[in-house]
Amino acid sequence: MTQIGASIAFGICAAWVGFALAGLVVPVLPASLFGGALGLALAWPFRRNIVSTGAIAIFAPFGVMLPALALHHIAISLGLDAPVFSSIEIAVFLLAYILFLVAAFGLLSVDLYRLGYSPRVVGVMTLAVCLYALATGNWFLALVAVSGQAIWAAGWSSSNWFDTVLHVTLVPIAAITLLTRLF
């Protein structure tokens, strides 16, 4: 299941990159078709190439949030309705996530990452995210939290819940999103 999950997640992320690059020269619809074809090709029939195996080696486990954000972005670009994060939410997330990574590097004495192995703590964290999503009406966030916990509990991805709902590439993505909104 890890292989299938990683291939799907990688295919979506590859589609996102293809969509973004194609979107520089063609309209949204053909760009999304090109991205989808690219992601499908790299994830399945041509998966045994150095780009696919190298990307999976570097970026796996992809988790849920990264491919979900990719689909979210493509869907909104195509004019579909989906909740968006406010700039304040992104800024708070970016700050908290950087602190989390700094702690993981051993630069803070507290080890936050190990909380993601504990079923009880993960249950509390998922509930907290869902309550926040309910309060703000952001069904996308609740969907990521719940599906992340489900995949984690089923053993289909990382044994640490944080890996299913976060990804280190979210740091540049959040930073760039913030910068584009500010300037």
Partner: peptide, 11 residues
């Protein structure tokens, strides 16, 4: 083969 999950920094 399977990588053990020990770090949030790309494992």
């Amino acid at each position: 083969g399977r990588k053990l999950n020990l770090s949030p920094f790309l494992n």
